[in-house]
Design a protein around this nucleic acid. Sequence first.
DNA 1: ACGCAACGCATCCGCC
DNA 2: GGCGGATGCGTTGCGT
Lengths: 88, 88, 88, 88
Amino acid sequence: MHDASAERLTNYIERIETLEEEKAALAGDLKEVYAEAKLEGFDPKVLRQVVRLRKLEEQEREEQESLLHMYMQALGMYGGASPEATAD
Amino acid sequence: MHDASAERLTNYIERIETLEEEKAALAGDLKEVYAEAKLEGFDPKVLRQVVRLRKLEEQEREEQESLLHMYMQALGMYGGASPEATAD
Amino acid sequence: MHDASAERLTNYIERIETLEEEKAALAGDLKEVYAEAKLEGFDPKVLRQVVRLRKLEEQEREEQESLLHMYMQALGMYGGASPEATAD
Amino acid sequence: MHDASAERLTNYIERIETLEEEKAALAGDLKEVYAEAKLEGFDPKVLRQVVRLRKLEEQEREEQESLLHMYMQALGMYGGASPEATAD
DNA sequence: ACGCAACGCATCCGCC
DNA sequence: GGCGGATGCGTTGCGT
């Protein structure tokens, strides 16, 4: 393998490992937060459910937004300067 | 629920959600790096295997450290003020 | 459901249950061995750590083999009838 | 550590590893059975539920058996050779 | 009783 | 689009 290739490979591996370390660190932080919350009497299991639920709701909202934008675009309600052509 | 509890709960949820967003961002970065590497001709499958192997090596080193500590503890070699007789 | 299907289903269930019983039996044997070793003064915690470490070493060997195969495949070194040019 | 201890330790480790290999082998067999069943159109998820359910029912039956034995013992219905004293 | 580790399950993503 | 592999989640059992 060319030296240049070996060097680029090394760079990729390092970037990957750095990112994964940071990810692992965040996972550790999450564990801590859950543990801390538990000490205050909040059930971790329920907390996770809440988080999951809010995530779902956020996705729903985004989908509705997206849908709204599609409708508005279909109706030529954007770039109102020259809405010459509406969707057939 | 007490207002104070509700507030603390809200804080926990927010901390969790922030951490998870950051984690998701890192996951996205990882995807990008793998994709970029692939474009330079590096097989993602092999890259992942390399990363896994290096992680394994690191774990092994850590486990050996841990084992050493256990042996030393079993032999009363810590806080050696009164290292009374060990079993064997 | 066809009689034949029902019969095959029954066979699968029985095979599964037999295997799971055997697995449970082995788990019981393991418990006994650890208990017996403990009676002779061997700390189960250390035993488990030793086992884990040896397993890790074995895994690492296997991963290296796997990696080697991947490299060779990436270099077209298998079924080498027509090993056309590799990227690097 | 005494040589004898080292030898006994080695024996324990080997016994443990043998048992774990066998356990892993059975786990592999189980995977195969589920895969084979899937090829015949049986949903693995459902199969697992069936197995779980049957296990529960077995536990129930055993508990009832156990209860029955306790009752019978309490009533002096065992060792029937000389049932001199029946419960008041 | 508590936290920790192994297991099994569901989900997701990349590959074919 | 289906499949296998990998990752993350939830559950259970074990040791402390």
